[in-house]
Nucleic acid binder design. Structure first.
Length: 85
DNA sequence: CATTTGACGCCAA
DNA sequence: TTTGGCGCCAAAT
């Protein structure tokens, strides 16, 4: 069974190091380009250590949010070489 | 079952 | 450039 939620988890887990996808990109890869809202909602209510949700950012280039604080997220992205800030 | 919420995206003003 | 508003989807209430 591959519900949209499970697809989102899979897609995010498949994000290679040094790569950052936007919520819209994740939603598109998950099969629903317009479910970007749901993507954020799913990750928010289901923070999982297996899921590098810190690699998912907004289309504007802003980091967006993070369960443990957007500060850590920004630093992680910078360490991976994916952030442009 | 109906309504609200929310880590969003894009356009008009 | 910044602000406000609308659209869209899944989960929570």
């Amino acid at each position: 069974m591959m519900t949209f939620t499970e697809k989102v988890y899979t897609v995010v887990k498949r994000i290679p190091k040094g790569t950052v996808l936007t919520y819209k990109q994740v939603a598109t890869r998950a099969g629903k380009p317009k479910a970007y809202r749901a993507v954020g909602n799913i990750l928010n209510k289901n923070f999982n250590p297996e899921i590098p949700c810190h690699r998912v950012v907004r289309s504007d280039g802003t980091v967006g949010g993070y369960n443990r604080g957007s500060v850590s997220k920004r630093r992680i992205l910078r360490a991976e070489g994916a952030s442009m800030l």
